[in-house]
């Protein structure tokens, strides 16, 4: 056991423990905050595994952007602040399938790698990864930029209810609203 192994064990334990709390906690907001701990521990794992750039991108995009988006969604859907009891379905099939997938993969990987040891490769700095992306992986990179653009446009179209409706319905909608107002007071 070298220092890297000890660090990997500790960070992995933190990540798995926080992951357990994400899928079991009764508080919506706390689930998002445990997700931060889990993703941060994984970023530490990436650093130990000499993937520098991936670790910083993980911190920036996951911990910075994705979790903030998720917490925004929690607030916008008017989630209760305290514990809520209706977050879960009955859990036996989920525990069976999830546990089966996790333990099956664990057995497979432990059997494949045993207690073997490898030397860490050269660190994946921004310079080396950038050379690889812009020399060997240019086409996937460009396709991903198109995908990001389409996801952006799709999210805008989805979240604006006035886009994409049939045109003749538009004049009817305000009239219906005006009708409802005095009706509600009656």
């Amino acid at each position: 056991m070298t220092g890297a192994d000890v660090l990997l064990l500790a960070l992995g334990a933190v990540a798995v423990g926080a992951g357990v709390l994400v899928v079991t906690t009764k508080h919506l907001v706390r689930a998002g905050l445990y997700l931060v701990v889990c993703l941060g521990a994984l970023a530490g794992d990436f650093l130990v595994l000499s993937a520098e750039l991936v670790a910083w991108v993980q911190v920036l995009i996951y911990v910075g952007a994705v979790v903030v988006l998720l917490l925004f969604a929690v607030m916008l859907t008017r989630a209760p602040i305290g514990a809520s009891d209706d977050l879960d379905r009955p859990g036996w099939p989920a525990a069976l399938i999830g546990g089966g997938a996790g333990l099956g993969l664990t057995v497979l990987l432990v059997d494949a790698y045993r207690w073997s040891s490898v030397a860490l490769p050269a660190a994946g700095t921004a310079e080396r990864l950038g050379e690889q992306i812009f020399q060997s992986w240019v086409l996937p990179f460009e396709v991903l930029s198109v995908l990001l653009l389409s996801a952006l446009v799709g999210a805008i179209v989805l979240s604006r209810p006035d886009i994409g409706r049939p045109a003749p319905q538009r004049p009817a909608a305000p009239a219906a609203r005006v009708d409802v107002e005095p009706g509600g007071r009656r």
Binding site: G19, G98, G100, G102, L103, T106, L109
Partner: peptide
């Protein structure tokens, strides 16, 4: 670690 996290995600 990754296998256990994946199982937790499926669950």
């Amino acid at each position: 670690t990754a296998a256990l996290l994946f199982g937790l995600g499926v669950y």
